[in-house]
Amino acid sequence: MILRSSEDRAPLALRSLSVAYRGVPALWDVSWEARAGSMTAIVGPNGAGKSTLLNAAMGALRPLAGEAFFWGQPFAEARSRVAYVPQRESVDWDFPVTALEVVEMGSARRLDWLLPAWVRRGAANRGHRREARGCLEELGLGAFADRPIGQLSGGQQQRVFLARALAQQADLLLLDEPFAGVDSETEDALFQRLRRLCSEGTTVVAVHHDLETARSRFDDAVLLSGSVVATGPATEVLSEENVRRAFAPGSRSPRQLA
């Protein structure tokens, strides 16, 4: 008998994952596996536990019960292969950094987190900088590399975050509302870029609020309302019947939790 290598295992597998805030359940008994090389939308009303799902999977929140596996391993063992993009509103965009400096956080490895760039002038450091600039250019932000992020528009800020994720060269992207505040033209370009990543084997899991594009642009969907309403191919999961059930008042947990 041949042991299955970790490559054969799902990039992300949740096993009966439950999370509670102060004793109030936010996510209940979620079991689901992401298909390698696919794009999955996590959809649901406010407080359905969409962001909670990503945070609990990465161990940023301690689950009440259940486990999350990345290629069969806990997150701590697999983090170098996972890129996480938090909600844009979760950071202070008035922060004094440039777009390029943010993207460089994506290409940084281990010892890169120590000593400022002017101390480390080695070839590796120049390589990182070139890589980071390349990621910005790829998303059409080459001209904005040295701008403070506070001067960028909402859509450009979102693209900076995605460029940082690209710079991580990860096999799994966990994106929290990556298209919030992005105009439709940019959204189109970003979807094409993500689709190309998928065709190269990368798996994309994105919290997404727009049902229309969730159906048309994603392969799979997880419809959440505290617990799982449906999982599977996006067009089937997001049927009117299922959506009505998930978004019906009273269907979710009593307290609104993001």
Partner: peptide
């Protein structure tokens, strides 16, 4: 100076820093 990139990443985006 020693922890500069670390401090910058952690101060700017703690959730991302934790994921790394």
């Amino acid at each position: 100076v020693l922890a500069w990139p670390l401090l910058r990443a952690v101060t700017f985006d703690a959730a991302f820093a934790r994921s790394r």
